[in-house]
Design a protein around this nucleic acid. Structure first.
Lengths: 349, 349
DNA sequence: TGAAAAAATGTAAGCGCTTACAAAATTCAA
DNA sequence: TTGAATTTTGTAAGCGCTTACATTTTTTCA
């Protein structure tokens, strides 16, 4: 074992200072404000630093400086790759600004989320990006107590304290539903996330309900399925609907994962999308353009949202005050999974 | 603006100590070793802590204690969701042990990776999980200098210093190629990641080359494409192959993303998979079971690998010495995207 | 050329916690 | 009941850095 490799080399600012014949303050300056120290001295210090692979201690720096240069990102899941795009753009901004991001996955568990955010507070992150609107009140107390800036995403904040970057889930849902109605569908099924733990799912569910009402279609609980974000969940939900004595002619799947699962179920049951049944998704994941049939879906600005959220957070961290709410646009992307309803003989009501 | 919310409440261990009428040492003990302080006193302290939503300062704790309870995870991309499963299982283990994970995405850029790992060292993470085998030597110097344990994944380490948790990319590639040969294919195309920055891609590329040689098939550079992990890359590569005067009858796509992109291209060009062309993937992403046709692919133990890697890392962190290399099994999952070669009249050579 | 202004550097007091070690309180055994 | 053994608690010295303030050096300009 090489486990006992001697840690030779200078490891503290004090040792570097001594070796370079300057004070610790000067070393600190060449690291943090190089322009304030004279060139000759600066070079000397830098040389010692390089020769020793010196990497300063961020913990000590944070303690002394009151800044950790770390932000926390809280998302509900990484199974649904829509959050990958979101995460990615946040990472990019953070990296560019010299910040690290601690990624936290709550699994749609409010209690777990509270625990994890508590951990972020312990780590004294400089800011936090939160997903969705349902959080334990203790979370807010902790954030406020430690004056940790935070921005909400995926849903507009309802207080006016924290800025939010989001899009309108309800309007977006309506967009999907209206599309289906415009194609002549009236018997429409819904597959969405669990509305009890996911307020985005709840908003989309509501747009489903309202659209139905607007078009005088009776709500049929047999046609709505709240499931986890897994292909298989969309699949099993779809199977149940196909087996319904009065199956739907169209499905609003409130996320692409479930939509693709549903399409797969149709195929397994011998139905063709969109000829036999139309399916509209939500998210516009990259796969939506490459699956078969290509998925008609609602494009969600995940990357832009991440980008803007991170930007806003850094503004907050830098002391700017902004209580604005950013609402990003969504749009319907029509591809191949939707078509006009077929005038079936069995078309009832 | 509520920006000036007064931060009332006790915020340091010293204040808590005073309020509870004990010493800072005692407060520290009730937080870290509750069983060593008498019940009455412990309760008193706990009460003060609760009443004030006191959350201790992890920076100070780390500085004083020499442990950060944070690990770093370095992956090349989150676009390819195979890393999502991997990340997820690592997160789970870490959370259970009270650790946070700092996620770092290198984008296959060795230099960027070096920078980012440097940042992890600054943060004095207790350990690091690395993906792949190509890293700047400076990285190792830094890790060694600070005695930061690290485990390699997705490829077995070639030194005997760091343990690794991986599977055999070369054997796995052979598995795929042999399958294709066993179905009678001889004109086989390859789509894989960029071998210059991705040693997993390089290993798979090698298995392609070797398998060809073994079966006396001449290597045709027109049939190999090294691309990024995007559906569209698989798509365009496939289009090029279809347009080849002598198109392949089968494709080894060294990852599912590109495989699905390729399938989509076949459809766009009017070809049917697997009747007209067989495609075998690599990774076995969740989507592989729900796309059309269902993808024949190599199942990679991403979750298990994450689980084991995290376990090994914590063993290392806890001072256990293990220089072992774990090699996890892979397997071929046969689904619908492969079929025996058709005896085409134009079948040459 | 010399005094004042400006720039560069050093000194040392924290930042909030942990943990040896010392001191005090409690328990035990005869 | 008492002294030793044991348990509980307190004291204070760091951990490695930043930074206000003091001091020294350099520059400026009359």
């Amino acid at each position: 074992m090489k486990a006992f490799t001697k840690k030779q080399g200078l490891r503290t600012i004090e040792q570097i200072a001594k070796a370079a014949g300057v004070s610790t303050a000067t070393v600190s300056r060449v690291i943090n404000n190089p322009e304030t120290v004279k060139a000759a001295k600066r070079e000397a210090v830098l040389k010692v630093i390089e020769q020793n692979d010196y990497i300063h201690d961020g913990m000590a720096k944070s303690l002394a400086g009151g800044k950790t240069r770390t932000i926390g990102l809280v998302i509900p899941t990484i199974t649904n790759s829509i959050y990958a795009a979101f995460t990615h753009s946040i990472q990019r901004i953070a990296q560019k600004s010299g910040y690290s991001v601690i990624l936290v996955v709550s699994d749609f568990d409010e209690d777990k989320e509270k625990q994890l955010i508590r951990r972020l507070v312990e780590r004294r992150v400089d800011g936090i990006i939160l997903t969705g609107g349902e959080h334990d009140p203790a979370v807010f107390r902790a954030l406020e107590r430690h004056s940790i800036p935070c921005v909400f995403t995926w849903r507009s904040s309802e207080d006016n304290i924290h800025p939010s970057v989001s899009f309108d889930n309800y309007e977006a849902g309506l967009l999907a539903m209206e599309k289906l109605f415009s194609l002549g569908h009236r018997r429409i099924g819904l597959i969405c996330g669990r509305t009890d733990v996911n307020d985005r799912a709840e908003k989309r569910w509501r747009s489903y309900v309202d659209a139905l009402a607007k078009h005088d279609v009776e709500f049929d609980p047999e046609l709505v399925f709240e499931r986890d974000f897994e292909f298989i969940e969309g699949h099993t939900a779809m199977v149940r609907m196909i087996d319904n004595p009065e199956p739907p002619t169209a499905i609003f799947a409130a996320n692409d994962i479930q939509a693709i699962g549903a399409i797969s179920a149709c195929r397994d049951k011998g139905l063709t999308v969109p000829q036999d049944i139309s399916i509209i998704g939500f998210d516009d994941l990259p796969i939506a353009q490459f699956c078969h049939p290509k998925l008609t879906t609602i494009h969600v600005p995940a990357s832009d949202m991440g980008h803007l959220a991170a930007t806003r957070l850094f503004q907050l961290i830098n002391g700017e005050t902004l209580s604005d709410t950013d609402i990003l646009p969504v749009k319907l992307v029509e591809r191949e999974s939707t078509a006009p309803v077929r005038a079936l003989s069995e078309e009832t009501r």
